[in-house]
Amino acid sequence: MRNQRAWQDIAFSGANYTLLAALGFFTLFPFWNLFSISLNDALDTLKGGIYFYPRHFTLTNYEIIFRNDSLVHATFISVARTVVGTALGVIATAMLAYSLSRKTFVMRKPFNIILVFTLFVNAGLLPSYLLIRDLGLMNHFAVYIVPALISAYNVIIVRSYFEQLPDGIVESATIDGANDYQVLFRIVMPVSMPVIATITLFIAVVHWNSWFDNYLYTSGTESLNTLQFELQKILLQSANELVASGNSLSSQQLRTNPETIRASMTMVVTLPILFVYPFLQRFFVKGIMFASMKE
């Protein structure tokens, strides 16, 4: 009986490891495939068949991207936008979520309804553009920050987490003379770091990857171009060069193509976020442990 149970445990563990290995492979393979394409010759890539490793290794794709003189300044703008936008977005989200989580807030129910309503109804692109124009944010760095301060989805996540905190934490701080700002920034947010880290990552990824608002609102000011917008311009230029070459595989003038440029761009914009994630991972682990202890 004991031997049968041991074999069952081994079979179960083997099935689990096999399934996890398969999931890991299908998750990592697309990223590795793009990495291989980014290191492959552009003319050779058009033939297809690049899967696990580059057939003709080259760094030309990255050279084309990084030789752009405006790329350094665009990277600075993207980093500044991500840092400032994430910091202010987290603070604004936490303040609104804290207000909506307090049962003593008189307008709590109407504001919660309005917040959820915005998840299903959007004014559209044209009204948003007219609003940004009338607010005087066109061709201004603030256009990257102000419209993205609040996300209804992030507020709902943080509000739900705040509502699960014991009421005694807030009540004891209030009795000791703390005001709402002190309660939020010195008590509630420090004990809510798992959810704060989660929305920090969400907001940072949105700011880092955004380029369409640059195209709409600040494309007339080159000094405000972000890294992603400059990379989009390089991708468009590569596509034009491919069309000009007649899409000929025998063309020796073809140094790159949209596929290799797109793969290289993916590496450039993804790696910074991958380096940031390990610093936030410990907060996710703490969140899991906190939830298990509460249960």
Rank of each mutant, 00 (worst) to 15 (best):
125 L>P: 09
237 Q>A: 13
13 S>L: 15
219 S>W: 04
174 T>Q: 14
251 S>N: 06
165 L>N: 05
265 M>Q: 13
75 T>M: 04
78 S>I: 03
14 G>F: 03
168 G>K: 13
202 F>T: 00
6 A>L: 14
291 A>P: 07
292 S>M: 14
12 F>Q: 15
182 Q>R: 15
177 G>P: 03
186 R>G: 14
70 S>P: 12
295 E>F: 06
84 V>C: 05
69 D>T: 10
43 L>F: 02
157 I>G: 08
28 L>P: 14
178 A>N: 05
161 Y>M: 02
284 F>K: 00
75 T>N: 05
138 M>C: 05
27 T>K: 07
34 L>T: 12
173 A>G: 00
219 S>Y: 03
22 A>T: 13
211 W>F: 06
179 N>M: 01
221 T>C: 09
132 I>A: 01
229 F>P: 04
242 L>W: 08
132 I>G: 08
234 I>L: 09
102 R>Q: 00
83 V>D: 03
173 A>Q: 10
272 P>T: 11
128 S>P: 02
180 D>P: 13
253 Q>V: 13
94 A>K: 02
292 S>G: 11
22 A>G: 15
129 Y>V: 11
254 L>A: 00
225 N>Y: 09
230 E>K: 06
3 N>L: 13
79 V>W: 02
29 F>Q: 10
194 P>R: 07
246 G>K: 11
62 Y>I: 01
251 S>F: 04
168 G>Y: 09
160 S>K: 05
88 L>W: 05
32 W>I: 14
19 L>T: 14
71 L>K: 00
117 F>N: 13
146 V>E: 11
55 R>N: 10
53 Y>K: 12
276 V>W: 04
16 N>A: 15
105 F>S: 03
286 K>Q: 13
259 E>H: 11
273 I>S: 07
91 I>Y: 04
200 T>W: 03
7 W>G: 11
149 L>G: 04
197 A>R: 06
96 L>P: 11
141 F>P: 01
173 A>L: 05
262 R>S: 15
53 Y>G: 11
282 R>G: 01
95 M>N: 07
205 V>D: 13
273 I>L: 07
295 E>Y: 10
163 E>D: 10
134 D>H: 12
79 V>C: 08
47 K>L: 06
176 D>M: 11
120 F>A: 05
224 L>Q: 04
126 L>N: 12
216 L>C: 09
116 V>P: 11
180 D>H: 12
